[in-house]
Design a protein around this nucleic acid. Structure first.
Lengths: 242, 242
DNA sequence: ATATTTAAAGCTATAAAAGCAATAAATGCT
DNA sequence: AGCATTTATTGCTTTTATAGCTTTAAATAT
């Protein structure tokens, strides 16, 4: 994955972006430099470069925050390509087959899941695509399904040294859970407080995203639902890879 | 804006991302290198670095496409900060005052607008935030309002050499329109085919985003609506800058 | 108004990309 | 299926861009 000659500057630049996106408020360049433990001139120049590109916005008070470039890049990738739009039809079909469930498609990065498709029962199709919600990966079926596709090292690297939401007993219990998920090919977790609701997610072949169903699922239906999800994923994959 | 020592690698890396986000389908590294007119080893190494970071995804066929990092970064910046969530209340208030109109907040980058808030009449609050839709800036009131805040050079740089959606007579007519918008402080354009519907947008002080109202607007109400939008923008600004 | 902190630029050593050449791996073609 | 062409990937050397120190300027706080 990592090339023989990775571009260090690019890596550091993205770290700046990441820091800004996680921050509660806009940051001064020196604050970023301290957060990332890099020399202040360097952070400053990276941030200014990102600001020039428009990925970062520098407000009147000179503080930096995430800028217009990021949402536009995401929107472009979702809309300008037939790639993603072609996913809507198969997903709406799925929604019709299981009308009482929520249908979601999401990606996982650095322990965080973002769903770009989310249709709740009764929601018009045009509202379902083009969303960006956020959940902690370890509390989401989509996140667990995708994490189960990562190597154990990658998972450890991601979660080491910080509390793992939903796994208060730490990394080993997460790793164990992921092993189970990997072997069965799907993640099933309770959804919300009530014992009736569950979330069921299956990862896509490429491991880029996962598809989830949430609602009143009964244990005996699981194998059938997993099959349905896998079938839908195949449709999605061929829809945007031909 | 541009620092004395901009980081060239970072700029090139982002150009790769941009190329992928605009592409109809996943690209081979050599295709990216040809699109951007850079040496192929360089493009390859940048893409591999981005793939390692997770901003780009390399599928089984080795082709590159936008990866999970981007949507997660956007979602994080929208949700993990009180910054953006604090915008919901003022916007819902606005929606209540003008119940028949659509309310949108969007950013503009490289001639493209992405709205991250979009509430249509009757839409629940929780569905309005966390959207990423896409429109061409020159066809959108939000885009025109934000472009009017850019220098003429910046605008020319963005649109030179390509057709400008909605301005078939070219750059000069866009520049003229932007001058008008800048002087009056708002953009007003017809919305859809019917002559009844309009879109009205006002840029935020920092020029980071603009707020728009779309629907059945009558000419004589414009000044009042502009005031209302400006007032809401002040609330938004203070909501996330204190 | 003054002191302190942060931002930004200049400059040089150095480390990191660029780009060529070589090899390996895919892909396409017959 | 086997050969030819294209693409991906690495190694190596040169060159160039970045790191980071120092200095100056601009904000911000006191």
């Amino acid at each position: 994955m990592l090339p023989a000659q990775p571009n260090q500057s690019l890596i550091e630049g993205i770290r700046c972006l990441q820091a800004l996106s996680l921050s509660e408020k806009p940051l001064r360049s020196i604050e970023v430099s301290r957060l990332l433990k890099v020399e202040s001139t360097k952070a400053h120049r990276l941030l200014k470069t990102l600001a020039h590109l428009g990925l970062v916005h520098q407000g009147g008070n000179r503080k930096f925050q995430v800028g217009p470039g990021l949402p536009v890049l995401v929107a472009q990738s979702l809309y300008s390509a037939p790639l993603w739009r072609s996913m809507v039809d198969p997903l709406q079909d799925l929604q019709r087959q299981i009308p009482s469930c929520k249908v979601e498609v999401g990606m996982c990065w650095e322990g965080v899941v973002s769903c770009f498709y989310c249709s709740e029962p009764g929601m018009p199709a045009s509202w379902a695509m083009g969303r960006v919600d956020m959940q902690m990966a370890t509390r989401s079926a989509i996140g667990l399904a995708l994490l189960s596709c990562c190597s154990q090292e990658k998972v450890e690297e991601t979660f080491i040294g910080r509390p793992i939401p939903g796994f208060s007993r730490g990394l080993p219990s997460l790793v164990k859970e992921l092993r189970t998920i990997r072997s069965q090919g799907y993640a099933l977790i309770p959804d919300g407080q009530s014992g009736e609701r569950f979330s069921l997610a299956v990862p896509q072949e490429d491991k880029l995203y996962a598809l989830a169903l949430s609602g009143d699922l009964s244990k005996e239906d699981i194998p059938e639902l997993v099959q349905l999800l896998q079938h839908t994923l195949e449709l999605l994959y061929s829809a945007h890879n031909n």
